[in-house]
């Protein structure tokens, strides 16, 4: 996984509440058996005027010019500004894969759905929850100023605006550590292999019906 320390980048809007993972990456693209290549289909139904198919060359498709991500001013954005309950619905990890593949390293919103929030951290994407009033203010500042950039500093847990304002954010320690170091958490967990084995041994005695039934 790509480590995340500090990201300075252009900010783009996804200005609606309850953006679900079906909207982030529609179901037809879930048929892929790969982890990469979802970027061109991020927000597919909003970005294009036609119905997208897996494996299609998206550069030939008609763009929805009213969708902000297609505006020239937001090209190259790496920070997505969003509203309440971002990432609700399906557990598909294809949603953060698509965001990451498109070039987003960070999503800022007032709140996130639990599964999506967790999936982001596994893919080098940092979700930051800030209070609703602050997010609204960032939206206003972004709309008012073309080329609006933010700096997100995970080490110091703060977002820095162009005016130099520093906005602190919360993130739990384990997730922060893994993201800062770009760690593979399976490798970390396997360091606890002995603890897992001794738990299993205890449970085999206590609850034998949990073992060796499906085979």
């Amino acid at each position: 996984m790509k480590a995340f320390t500090v990201e300075t980048g252009l900010v783009a809007p996804m200005d609606r509440a309850n953006v679900d993972t079906d909207l982030i990456i529609p179901k037809q693209f879930l048929k892929s058996i790969k982890r990469s290549g979802f970027g061109p289909n991020l927000f597919d139904e909003l970005r294009y005027l036609d119905e997208g198919q897996p494996g299609e060359d998206c550069s030939q498709r008609p763009l929805n010019t009213e969708f902000p991500l297609n505006f020239p001013r937001y090209q190259g954005a790496s920070i997505l500004l969003a509203r309440e309950n971002f990432g609700c619905g399906s557990s598909r990890e294809h949603a953060p894969w698509a965001l990451e593949d498109y070039g987003f390293r960070c999503v800022i919103a007032p709140s996130f759905a639990d599964i999506f929030y967790n999936n982001c951290f596994k893919n080098g994407v940092l979700p930051i929850a800030l209070d609703g009033a602050t997010v609204s203010r960032l939206f206003d500042e972004m709309y008012a100023s073309e080329g609006y950039q933010l700096t997100v500093d995970l080490r110091q847990q703060k977002v820095v605006t162009p005016s130099g304002e520093e906005i602190p954010f919360e993130v739990d320690e384990f997730r922060r550590h893994c993201l800062l170091e770009g760690l593979d958490d399976i490798g970390l967990t396997l360091k606890s292999a002995d603890a897992i084995r001794s738990y299993e041994q205890k449970m085999r005695q206590q609850s034998p019906w949990l073992f060796d039934v499906i085979k």
Partner: peptide
């Protein structure tokens, strides 16, 4: 529900963080 990274994590370790 879990994401695909956690599917792999469960397959490999029988646990989740």
């Amino acid at each position: 529900g879990i994401g695909t990274s956690e599917v792999e994590h469960v397959l490999a370790t029988q646990t989740l963080i």
